[in-house]
């Protein structure tokens, strides 16, 4: 008879108190709890409903800015059609175009190569690059390796790290 670890499913002998593979507490059932890190969400930019596009937009005229919610900083994405985002850590061979490590991205669960922003014909997309903690748009998890359309005001969560997309047509 064995005990199955609720966290990592490894089999432990009866009488075990902590999982030998992942260290989870096997008796209280509350070994691994997700600690909530309070992040100020209050400063999202109010977004007015987007006006219906009246006429076809000029190619390449739209602009996307990333608003780092925690710090209020704005990062403009310009001059390319794709930007990878993640955090730089020691010994990493492929570096992201946008490095979030100065913003404490590590503890917020941002992967080294977390996602790609794509700009195509005045539309903006995000693709999750198979990150450990996933990407959410307005709190809805998106599947990895698929382009998702971004709209003005969307809140993107890379792990717990929140970015608001500000799009100017």
């Amino acid at each position: 008879m064995t005990i199955q670890c609720p966290n990592c499913s490894s089999a432990e002998p009866e009488g075990a108190i902590f999982c030998s593979d992942c260290g989870a507490n096997l008796v209280s059932g509350s070994g691994l709890s997700t600690a909530a890190i309070p992040a100020p969400d209050a400063q999202l930019y109010p977004v007015e409903p987007a006006p219906p596009p009246a006429e076809p937009l000029q190619v390449g005229s739209a602009q996307i800015n990333l608003h780092i919610v925690r710090t209020g900083q704005i990062i403009p994405l310009e001059g390319r059609s794709e930007f990878t985002i993640g955090r730089i850590s020691e010994g990493q061979s492929i570096l992201p175009d946008i490095d979030l490590s100065p913003y404490d991205a590590y503890t917020q669960g941002v992967s080294r190569l977390h996602a790609t922003f794509k700009i195509n014909n005045n539309e903006f997309f995000i693709e999750d690059l198979g990150s450990s903690n996933g990407t959410r748009i307005n709190n809805t998890k998106i599947p990895p390796l698929h382009d998702q359309v971004l709209h003005h005001g969307d809140v993107i969560s890379l792990g717990r790290f929140k970015i608001q997309a500000l799009i100017r047509q």
Binding site: M1, T2, E12, P13, E14, G15, A16, I17
Partner: peptide
């Protein structure tokens, strides 16, 4: 002891 009693088992069990 971690347990008041052991279980009658033919597989291994742990006691701290």
């Amino acid at each position: 002891y971690s347990r008041d009693a052991l279980t009658q088992l033919d597989s291994p069990q742990l006691l701290y």
